[in-house]
Design a protein around this nucleic acid. Sequence first.
DNA 1: AAAAAAT
Length: 511
Amino acid sequence: MKFRELGLSEDLLKAIEDKGFKEATPIQAETIPLTLQGKDVLGQAQTGTGKTAAFALPIIEHVDLDNPNVQALVISPTRELAIQTQSEISRFGKEKGVKAVSVFGGSDIRRQIQSLKRRPQIVVGTPGRLLDHINRKTLKLDHVKTLVLDEADDMLDMGFLDDIESIIKQVPEDRQTLLFSATMPAQIKRVGVQFMKDPQQVTIKAKELTTDLVDQYYIRVKQFEKFDIMTRFFDIQAPKVTIVFCRTKRRVDEVSKGLLLRGYRAAGIHGDLTQNRRSQIMKDFKNDKIDVLVATDVAARGIDISSVTHVYNYDITQDSESYVHRIGRTGRAGRHGVSMTFVEPNETSYLRDIEKLTKVRMLPLKPPSADEALKGQLEVATKEIGSLIEKTKMDAFADSADELLSQYDAKDLVSVLLSKMTRNQVKVHISAEKPLPNKNKRGHGGGYRGNRGGGNHRRNGGGYRGNRGGGNGNNRRRYSGNGNHRDDHKNGGRSSNGKRPNKSFTIKNKD
DNA sequence: AAAAAAT
């Protein structure tokens, strides 16, 4: 479906073209006409399929430039998402001359007040700061025509509902209400519908809740070995742009510190950091200065960095919806992605719950051995030498090099170099968390024998190179294609009857 | 139980 057929004006069509959009996605094609008609819309579609544009475009279309009031309000669950949504709206609205502003906590409120005084027609914000502005009377919502709850099921959940209700009270009853999300549990939908009039539900039917662009794997691990196993996977996959999700802020700190110690370009992000720091880290991640972003669920929803190649669930989610959103950070805008979920022995029931919601079977992977990890590191190091040879100023080292060559075997010298480039004795300890409340009586029956010990094949400071941007997809073949790490099953894991192959839970330790 | 969200 072409955007031109949806009833949008030339200004917007130009902005859409400038952004490089060719055809409307299904959620856009189905909701934009309804929204343009002024209907209340409940839109549900997979992550990364353009829901933001689906509500942003008709809102911009409806903006009356002669009306000096705030005409549309978008509420977001996190500050980063509010920033991103505002900037996307601004881009689409530029041609028409529409102003959008974002307001959120943790940043200077006076500057926000100034920006609100410049009469934006569209405001995007997080609940707390929106209420703050409402109470200060620096934000008036009495002329709002359209209200959007982005990530609606999150906004209508207990932690947010009171704030949302208070904000909605400030918006005229006679308004258009739009709810968008990839997930929408039935009981939350019932709450949301109460804020709507004659809601039109648009659900983009897909066999699965998650996009098939993401290959979903899981790995059975013990708590104490999780970190080492993750870095072994890193060594093999040479992840380019990766997000690692942890259950708590503390774990984010520990895991990101551990990765830094081992020479990865990593940084952690969570709600206890200053907003300046949060913004800086997001910027660094987008600009390639960080390869691995370690995050709490603050980064689970909405964040659109289409270059993300891998999502690791270092800690599995108890909340299946959250899983859908986390892995939805990759496989965006038609690109391929990989998700890796670690499952501790007592977490099997969460794995089942997630699969029940997504209707996708995750494929089991075996933890790589230390040898396989080393092999991966050597591959990276070998490539790195090629580029270092071009970059290094040889003159300064020539004499010492000659001396060494006269004294030792060249092969030995290179081996020493490689060992320096691949090894790092840094020990990383990640504290045990209180185990999740056990929904099952017990975990599985102990088919798993941990890949214990080892863990000494670590990188040195320069060992890891993001190597971003180059050929998508070959990355994936490196471990999913050679079959070495996969459990023993013949049909590639996802059998046609949807059953998990037998014995896929038994992972034997080869070491 | 955690995280997010105002100071």
